[in-house]
Design a protein around this nucleic acid. Structure first.
Length: 589
RNA sequence: GGGGUUGUAGCUCAGUCGGUUAGAGUGCCGGUCUGUCACACCGGAGGUCGCGAGUUCGAGUCUCGUCAGCCCCGCCA
């Protein structure tokens, strides 16, 4: 039907007789001549119509060609008379002189333009989603989806090469006790009972380890019924990995190799091995478990340096067991009061009561903190002339998130230089539990193997138990996380008990996992990587929606298909369901 | 669930202090044009100012509510 795609045509193809097909991107009708930019997935090429080389019937018809019509043209590749000097296209040196053509399919006038002038904004996202067919014709989205394909292919090639086999796990499954709300699917056969869509294949992949598939992976769709963000969709794709007879370094090594392979597909640099930080150090130095290490700026402990400052706020916080931590910004003194206010606002936004700062000029230090400092004290804390200090005083749990926000804001305000464009990082040894107002929850999921030396403290001091969990972070974005899992049923039961489950709940919710673990379970561990986020970062997309062909809105609506919808006919009856839209019940805990 | 923001022609946007006939560019329709490449030029059609109330002599503009998109918090591997 066609000889080739259009994007690769070059001067060396001159003289070839070709058939091309595609969409009408732009048309320039000069009356006696007609130029069309013909588009397919590979790019654009100019095709020209003129009475001297186009047959009479085709020439007559050519003027009726409209934008986005699908046409097929037959003609001769020629070098452009002017060498294509004004053309921005890669194919600009050539054009196809059309001898004959046909309209394969007329297009109605597009609701949103596929072509856009350089200054014109994108159509409203609502319209882009409604008319997704047209939006997806844009080269930006085509390139993103093509890169996504190449990344998925590279994942499969790499995992296969390292002996991993892809096993599919159910989409209709059992509600998991993990954190998020489940999407439920009613059972027709068993009225009143529901399947759940998987939040992740976590338990299945552990069971597969017990079954002896000692290296598993899956490019797995996952579902979570929670409120959305720019980087969160209700359904998303994970690169799910699990292996038996492994230690942390085995998994990290494979994933580093995988990232190297993916980086090669994109224009991203990944030099191995990746930097590692314990969770404790990450929180100490950056206040975050996913710091953006493209920038060097790190938190310093000023508790000792500010010991002799007669500053009530600091004194009272330190007396209550808090610390004084913050940043020293060389040359930061040039920030205006207003700019510092913006930084302080970021600290408040992250939960801190405020930000203390001090500037040092020629006439000594100033600012809420600086005014308490003599020159000698300023020297001692390393506050030079022209510098700025930003500190928070209080308990680490409060100041760390605030300082993480301050770090981002200060980097932006001072336009600090990057030390690298691609900062890869492993954050390791996450705590197993989170203690929140006396309630103990799993900080990752309840299957993380604790450090051997911390196991004895599981019941006595759960907050201090470190786990074998690790996160992969790229430029401040969490790409994925994993751990070595518990493979001993008794230890697993202990963990579940600490999480507040009684024996009945343990059996009901985790019985099939525990049974599997009792059947001879190998030590195992793995990781799950967010495919969509990887594509988002690698393509510099502001939203995850741009990495998915048919995304949902922030209200979890699919505007293109119009899902969800109220079920019609007798389907509810068949399922034994009644809907009450008048008084939706409050969601219980 | 909460906060913020946007909604004006098919699309992208402007619209002053509340003032009488709501504009531009592009697209669309018609016409002229043989080397354009954001083709150029001439003409035309196209509006429930998201929706509903209210204030006012008068509302695109002010107030309240509501719907939808987006961003964030809560929530969420």
């Amino acid at each position: 039907m066609r000889s080739r795609m259009v994007g690769g045509l070059r001067v060396e193809h001159e003289g070839e007789e070709l058939v091309l097909a595609g969409w009408v991107h732009r048309r320039r009708d000069l009356g006696g001549l007609l130029f069309i930019d013909l588009r397919d997935r590979s790019g654009l090429v100019q095709v020209s119509f003129g009475p001297e080389w186009t047959d009479a019937i085709s020439w007559e018809l050519a003027h009726s060609i409209g934008h986005e019509d699908v046409i097929r043209v037959k003609g001769l590749v020629v070098a452009r008379p002017d060498g294509g000097s004004k053309s921005q296209m890669p194919t600009g040196g050539v054009e196809l002189q059309v001898r004959k053509f046909e309209i394969l399919s007329k297009a109605s006038t597009p609701e949103i333009p596929v072509y856009r002038t350089p200054e014109e904004e994108l159509p409203a996202e609502e319209l882009r989603l409604q008319h997704r067919v047209l939006d997806l014709r844009r080269s930006e989205l085509q390139e993103k989806l093509m890169l996504r394909h190449k990344l998925m292919l590279a994942v499969r090639v790499y995992m296969d090469r390292h002996g991993f086999i892809e096993v599919e796990t159910p989409i209709l499954t059992k509600a998991t006790p993990e954190g998020a709300r489940d999407y439920l699917v009613p059972s027709r056969v068993h009225k009143g009972e529901f399947y759940a869509l998987p939040q992740s294949p976590q338990i299945y992949k552990q069971v597969l380890m017990v079954a002896g598939f000692d290296r598993y992976f899956q490019i797995a769709r996952c579902f979570r019924d929670e409120d959305l963000r720019a980087d969160r969709q209700p359904e998303f794709t994970q690169i799910d990995v699990e292996a038996s007879f492994v230690e942390v370094d085995d998994i990290l090594g494979w994933v580093e190799g995988l990232m190297e392979a993916l980086a090669e597909v994109s224009e991203v640099d990944a030099s191995l091995p990746f930097q590692r930080l314990s969770w404790e150090d990450a929180m100490e130095l950056y206040g975050s478990d996913a710091p953006d290490l493209r920038y060097e700026l790190a938190i310093e402990d000023w508790t000792k340096a500010t010991e002799d400052l007669d500053f009530g706020v600091i004194r009272s916080q330190v007396d209550e067991g808090g610390r004084v931590r913050g940043f020293r910004l060389a040359g930061g003194g040039r920030l205006s009061r207003r700019e510092i206010d913006v930084i302080e606002e970021s600290a408040r936004g992250a939960g801190a009561p405020g930000l203390l700062w001090g500037k040092r000029g020629d006439e000594g230090a100033s600012g809420p903190l600086g005014k308490f400092m003599t020159d000698e004290q300023a020297d001692r804390v390393g506050l030079g002339i022209g510098d700025l200090v930003l500190v928070c005083a209080g308990k680490d749990g409060l100041t760390s998130p605030a300082l993480a926000a301050v770090r981002q804001a200060a980097i932006k305000a001072l336009e600090l230089p990057r030390v690298t464009e691609h900062a890869w990082l492993w954050v390791t040894d996450f705590p197993v539990f989170e203690e929140d107002e006396g309630r103990v929850t799993a900080s990752h999921h309840p299957f993380v193997m604790p450090h051997a030396s911390d196991i004895e403290n599981i019941e006595s001091g759960p907050g201090s138990v470190r786990g074998t969990a690790y996160d992969l972070v790229y430029n401040g974005t969490e790409f994925g996380s994993g751990s070595i899992r518990i493979h001993e049923p008794e230890l697993q039961r202990r963990i579940l008990r600490v999480l507040g489950l009684n024996e009945v709940e343990i059996e009901e919710k985790f019985g099939f996992l525990l049974k599997a673990l009792s059947a001879g379970a190998p030590p195992h561990g793995g990781i799950a990587l967010g495919m969509d986020r990887i594509v988002q970062r690698f393509t510099n997309s502001s939203s995850l929606r741009d990495t998915v062909a048919f995304p949902k809105t922030t209200a979890a609506r699919a505007l293109y298909e119009g899902a969800p919808t109220a079920p019609g006919g007798s389907s509810l009856e068949e399922l034994g369901l009644q809907v009450n839209t008048q008084n939706p019940p409050e969601r219980g805990e």
